[in-house]
Every structure is written in C-alpha cells, then in structure tokens.
Amino acid sequence: YFQGQLNAMAHQIQEMFPQVPYHLVLQDLQLTRSVEITTDNILEGRI
C-alpha cells in the first residue's frame, strides 16, 4: 500500500467517525490495511 491509498482510506473513515483523531485512524490503518477492520476497531473502542 502506498501512503496516498492509506490517506484516502483514513479520510473515508473520518467521514464516518469525525470524532476520532486522523492520526489515530491512519496509525491503525497502517497495521490493518483495511477500512473494515479499522472501522470495527473504532466501534469496539480499541481506538
């Protein structure tokens, strides 16, 4: 994955969860590489 793709995914998640800091979303995406998994992590309070 290149950074631009991760940034696009992070923006997509931020639209759904504007209360979660962008850098935390991006940090999780770098591990998961998945909008779905990061979204689940937010919903389950891991982020």
Rank of each mutant, 00 (worst) to 15 (best):
H11N: 09
L26P: 00
L24W: 10
L31C: 10
L43N: 07
G4H: 14
P21F: 06
L24T: 06
Q5M: 14
H23F: 11
F2G: 12
P18W: 05
Q5F: 12
I42M: 04
F17C: 05
T32V: 02
L24R: 06
G45M: 06
R33V: 06
D28M: 07
Q5I: 12
H23M: 09
L26K: 03
T38E: 01
L24S: 05
L6D: 03
L26V: 09
H23T: 08
V35E: 04
R33I: 07
E36A: 12
L6N: 02
I47E: 01
T38Y: 00
D28K: 01
L6I: 10
S34M: 03
Y22T: 05
S34L: 03
V25Q: 00
M9L: 11
I42A: 02
A10G: 03
L29K: 00
P18R: 05
T32P: 00
A8K: 10
I13N: 00
P21A: 08
M16I: 09
H11R: 14
F17H: 05
T39S: 08
D40W: 15
F17S: 01
F17V: 01
E15Q: 14
L26G: 00
D40Y: 15
T32M: 02
V35D: 02
R33P: 01
V20Q: 03
V25C: 06
Y22V: 06
M16E: 05
A8E: 12
S34P: 01
F2P: 11
F2L: 14
A8R: 07
Q30I: 14
L29G: 02
Q27K: 11
I42Y: 03
S34T: 02
I47V: 10
F17L: 02
V20S: 03
M9I: 09
E15F: 12
Q14K: 12
E15N: 10
L29D: 00
G4W: 15
A8P: 03
L26I: 11
E36I: 09
I47W: 06
H23R: 07
V20A: 05
V25K: 00
D40Q: 15
N7D: 13
M9Y: 10
Q19M: 12
L29V: 05
V20M: 08
I42N: 01
M9R: 05
L26Y: 11
D40C: 15
M9G: 03
M16L: 11
M9C: 08
L24D: 05
Q12S: 09
E36P: 07
L24G: 02
I13Q: 00
S34H: 03
T32F: 04
Q30W: 15
Y22C: 08
V35S: 06
A10I: 08
Q3T: 08
E15L: 15
R33F: 14
V25W: 01
G4C: 14
F2Y: 11
I42H: 00
N7P: 09
L24E: 05
T32Q: 01
T32K: 00
T39G: 04
P21D: 07
T32I: 01
S34R: 04
I42W: 04
R46Q: 04
D40S: 15
F2S: 14
I42G: 00
V25I: 15
F2K: 08
E15V: 12
Q5W: 15
M16T: 07
G4V: 11
P18Y: 04
P18C: 06
D28C: 11
V25F: 04
S34N: 08
I13F: 02
